[in-house]
Every structure is written in C-alpha cells, then in structure tokens.
C-alpha cells in the first residue's frame, strides 16, 4: 500500500534522475516508473539535463604519466593467470569478454559444446528476472567473472559474494553498476566445488541477484 502517486513521483523525479534518493524512496519511484510512461519520460528528461551538465565539464591536458599508463593498460597482451597486476586487468577483462562472447556463441549454436574448465550460471533477481551472468574458470588458479547487464539493477556499488555449502559466506569484491551495466572479475579464493550460490548484494544488505553454477558442458540439452 506504499504506491506513489504521479504527483509524488514528479516531486522526486529530479532526485531520482540524479540518483540521490535514499534507497526506500528510490525503490518506490522505480516501481512506479515501471508502469507509468509519463513519469518515466519526466525522469528521462531530467537525466538528459544532468547529462548535459556532465558533458559540459572542461577538458584538461593529460599528464604524461597518465597518458603512458592508459596506453600500457591497453588490452593487447594475452591473459596470464599469474599476472594480476593492475595494468594487465584491462587486457584480462577484454579477453574474458571475448572469451565469453565466443563461449556464448558456441553454446548458442551447439548444445554439445564441451568446456571442461568452466562453470557458468545466470544471475537472477528474487522475482526470477534476468540480471546477468557468472562464469568461473576452474583449474589451478580459479577465476570468477560476474556481469550485470540489461539495466536490471540501479546504478550503484554492489558486493559480490559466494555462499559455500558449509553455509559460510565469502566476499569476493565490489561490482559497480553504471548506466545499467557493470562487471567484476578476479581470482576465486575458494574451491569452486564448495560453492552453493553466487550472490550480488546491495548496500542495504538485500540480495538482489543470485546464481547457481553448472558446468559449461551440461544443463542445456
């Protein structure tokens, strides 16, 4: 019985567009926007005004040091499981994306595709909506990548964690969602066989998405 009226939403539309509403109000506004095109248009017009402000920020000369660092982080080096150094993360990420694209492509065309070194899962919301995906490269140095897409989560920072079969929880890292999408990847410090579910947790402690893992070669036939 907490539904907001259009006039209440229009009062909060500017704060919603700037993403500065407290969590409870934000949830109510977004709930309203799901079924009210007029209010959605209003919020979007505020978002465009805020975008115009950001785009109006000045340019500045880039220090030599940064210029070099940006170019040395260019993802042209093959991913090395031993090198978790920061400059290589960009390379790792792009290769992971490429790998994911290839895997998804293969999985889409062939149910019998066999990849003995990966486990995958779909991140779904409590209401079973699509949120994103998880992939674990098993093997000597397990690596986990989590991807949120489709604008299902509000912009913000979320905690990635795994619930183990022992019921213990292990925090993996933070995933920031910007403009509806975000991802996080890093070494998996726990045995993949002991994972019960992978979860995405909001700042207020709510579990906003979870995924079970299955081997990439099963579960589709």
């Amino acid at each position: 019985m907490n539904e907001l009226s259009c006039s209440a939403v229009s009062d909060l539309a500017a704060e919603a567009a700037l993403d500065v509403l407290p969590g409870d109000e934000r949830a109510l506004v977004f709930e309203h926007l799901e079924h009210c095109a007029a209010c959605l248009r209003l919020v979007e017009s505020y978002v465009r005004a805020a975008d115009a402000l950001l785009v109006s920020l000045p340019q500045a000369d880039v220090p030599e040091e940064l210029s070099t660092r940006l170019r040395s982080a260019v993802p042209s080096v093959p991913r090395s499981r031993r090198s978790y150094a920061k400059p290589l993360l960009g390379a790792v990420a792009v290769i992971l994306v490429a790998l994911t694209v290839v895997l998804v492509g293969l999985r889409a065309t062939s149910n019998t595709h066999y990849n003995p070194q990966a486990e995958v899962g779909s991140l779904v919301s409590p209401s079973n909506g699509h949120v994103g995906s998880v992939k674990v490269d098993t093997g000597a140095d397990p690596w986990i990548s989590m991807n949120v897409d489709g604008a299902s989560l509000a912009d913000g920072t979320y905690r990635c964690e795994v619930l183990l079969t022992s019921n213990a929880t292990v925090t993996l890292g933070n995933l920031t969602v910007a403009a509806g999408s975000g991802s996080w990847n890093g070494p998996l410090e726990v045995n993949p066989d002991h994972i019960s579910v992978v979860r995405v947790v909001a700042g207020n402690g709510d579990v906003v998405a979870m995924a079970g893992l299955t081997r990439a070669d099963v579960g589709e036939s």
């Binding site: 880039v62 660092r69 940006l70 982080a73 993360l89 960009g90 792009v94 910007a178 975000g182």
Partner: peptide, 12 residues
C-alpha cells in the same frame, strides 16, 4: 581516469 578507461575496455 585510468579506472574509467578500464571500465570502457570491460564494457564496450
């Protein structure tokens, strides 16, 4: 700035 480009590489 470095993180921003990193994010672009990841999410392009």
């Amino acid at each position: 700035a470095q993180d921003a480009f990193l994010r672009v590489w990841r999410h392009a």
